[in-house]
């Protein structure tokens, strides 16, 4: 298990952190391996981090690494098996009833597929005002409509064109703008954006990313940006955390991480993406054999050791802990490169 000591030096800990997650574990039941022994998917397995007010916290990793689960835990859409998540000092995993509802006003989520995350039978007006209704923020119908109009203006949609339309009448980019408007409806302070642009065409992506940055400035938002696309996260994030099979393997300021990765897996990820670029002189280091193993029965010790060319003796026995290797740069590896 990680300790607060390992992750957060005293000065960093109290520096306006919005979230502090400690020893977060999320297991999902996955059938039985014997008559009695239950099997579990170790989606998130002992992860600690903190998110600072006003930053864009990027979470990268391949499918099945646990990124989305972490985002859902912060939004209280999934309950952790163990561990704590402090939001401004209060443990959100313990919230119930009215205090949970109040929490949800501050934290919203934008999903990957805006077609699936919008109710096909609700008009844009209904979708955007729904969270306000749930939160009891609506005084009267006219007021709600006005608020919706303003939000639609703000996300770059023409209010009269879209307000009474259904999701299928909108393009992908428009739908994603509607889900952003819906997330903003309750004036949250923190937004988890889960692959917000990966379903969109490139020319549309740029517009959504610009919008997200504008809104961040305007409303003083803090983001968790979950994506598998390093180019997007590099552009958007202040700090980037790399996940592998339920573990956080490296966490550093965005630019630094893209320049110097110490964890072999981060190196594999960055070099895989970089080599696509034009004339991208691909560092012929190693090509990364194999694929991400199952999270039901994860490898012992360091999760990455079966694929790692730099593994040393203790890698398959001991679990490396996340520790600070330079200011603000955290790593969990026995044999950093």
């Amino acid at each position: 298990m990680l300790t607060a000591m390992a992750l957060s030096p005293p000065d960093a800990l109290h520096e306006s952190s919005m979230f502090e997650a400690e020893g977060l574990e999320v297991y999902f039941p996955a059938g039985r391996s014997g008559l009695f022994a239950r099997k579990y998917v170790h989606a998130v397995d002992g992860v600690s981090f903190l998110i600072r007010e006003g930053e864009v916290f990027g979470l990268v990793g391949e499918s099945g690494s646990g990124k989305t689960t972490i985002g859902r835990v912060l939004c209280r859409l999934t309950s952790p098996t163990s561990g704590t998540v402090l939001f401004e000092g209060k443990d959100i995993t313990k919230l119930r009833g009215e205090s949970l509802k109040k929490y949800r006003r501050q934290v919203q989520m934008i999903f990957q597929d805006p077609y699936e995350s919008l109710n096909p039978y609700s008009t844009v007006l209904d979708a955007v005002t729904f969270p306000m209704r749930v939160q009891g923020l609506i005084e009267n119908r006219n007021r709600a409509t006005r608020d919706c109009e303003e939000l639609l203006d703000r996300v770059g949609l023409r209010r009269h064109d879209v307000m009474n339309k259904y999701p299928h009448e909108l393009s992908g980019g428009e739908r994603q703008r509607v889900s952003i408007a819906r997330a903003l409806a309750v004036r949250p302070r923190f937004i988890v954006a889960d692959e917000p642009v990966s379903m969109l065409d490139i020319s549309i992506q740029a517009g959504i990313l610009n919008l997200m940055m504008d809104l961040k400035k305007e409303y003083g938002l803090t983001y968790m940006l979950i994506t598998h696309d390093l180019r997007v996260t590099q552009y958007m994030s202040d700090r980037i955390a790399v996940m592998y099979l339920g573990k956080l393997v490296e966490l550093a300021p965005g630019e630094e991480l893209m320049e110097h990765q110490f964890h072999p897996y981060s190196q594999l990820l960055v070099s895989s993406a970089a080599s696509f670029e034009l004339g991208g002189e691909r560092k012929e280091t190693w090509s990364g054999k194999g694929e991400i193993p199952s999270a039901i029965d994860p490898p012992s010790g360091c999760r990455f050791h079966p694929r790692c060319p730099f593994r040393v003796e203790q890698c398959d026995r001991e679990e490396p802990q996340l520790r600070m290797i330079r200011p603000d740069h955290y790593l969990s590896c026995f044999n950093p490169q």
Binding site: I202, S203, I204, R231, V232, Y235, G254
Partner: peptide, 23 residues
């Protein structure tokens, strides 16, 4: 030109991305 300018890899962090209006 618009497509290439809208790629995140071609601008620096903090700079605005170029986006092609409309669909």
């Amino acid at each position: 030109r618009g497509l290439i300018k809208s790629l995140t890899g071609f601008v620096h962090k903090g700079e605005r991305l170029w986006s092609i209006a409309g669909s």
